[in-house]
Simulated scan of single mutants.
Amino acid sequence: MSKAIIKTAKGDMTVEFYDNDAPKTVENFKKLAKEGFYNGLTFHRVLPDFVIQGGCPFSKDDATAHKAGSGGPGYHIDCELSGENQYHDRGVLSMAHAGRNTGGSQFFVCHSRNNTAHLDRNHTCFGKVIENVDVVDAIKQGDRIVSIDLIED
């Protein structure tokens, strides 16, 4: 399985991707990470005991911050919902969207399983934090993604 390190000021989270369950979503996320798309974006939506969400290009600077949460990479990807790992648990990365098959760059990481079961088979789970999951709890709204470094096998 491929991995990445999501670097933030609050610490680094090591993620293992669900290459088999969500190959197109993983491929898209890795492509954007390689291009530096996520560098400097904020976690623009933080809901305690639910999720931290980032990946909106409008969250990068103050001039467009009022539109944070409404942007993407300029295209949409299809949801991948049939894999065995399609459940939202603590540390799971999932593709945010505004309706089925409208995701692109925004993603969220789950705080816990407590309030996320309704997301199962509605949002594509494409990875999980396997090291330093406590960083998810430390992230506050407005904290930045420094970079996402891919670890290729």
Results as ranks from 00 to 15, higher is better:
61 D>F: 13
75 Y>T: 05
64 T>A: 09
148 I>D: 00
63 A>I: 13
27 E>L: 09
50 F>S: 00
111 H>Q: 06
71 G>I: 09
92 V>M: 07
44 H>C: 05
145 I>Q: 02
72 G>N: 11
120 D>M: 05
126 F>M: 05
23 P>V: 07
57 P>C: 10
92 V>F: 06
125 C>N: 09
8 T>V: 12
88 H>T: 13
30 K>D: 01
106 Q>A: 06
78 D>Y: 12
46 V>W: 03
94 S>R: 03
112 S>F: 08
146 V>W: 06
151 I>R: 10
64 T>P: 09
27 E>W: 00
95 M>P: 06
120 D>P: 00
110 C>V: 12
1 M>G: 04
115 N>Y: 11
50 F>N: 01
124 T>Y: 03
67 K>Y: 12
26 V>F: 04
131 E>Q: 14
140 K>M: 15
74 G>Y: 11
139 I>P: 02
63 A>K: 15
97 H>F: 00
9 A>W: 11
127 G>N: 04
86 Q>P: 01
3 K>G: 02
31 K>Y: 12
73 P>L: 04
98 A>Y: 08
148 I>W: 08
37 F>E: 08
132 N>Q: 12
116 T>R: 00
67 K>G: 04
141 Q>Y: 12
12 D>T: 10
15 V>S: 00
30 K>I: 04
43 F>K: 03
84 E>A: 11
15 V>P: 03
151 I>K: 11
140 K>C: 13
129 V>C: 10
6 I>M: 05
66 H>T: 12
34 K>H: 11
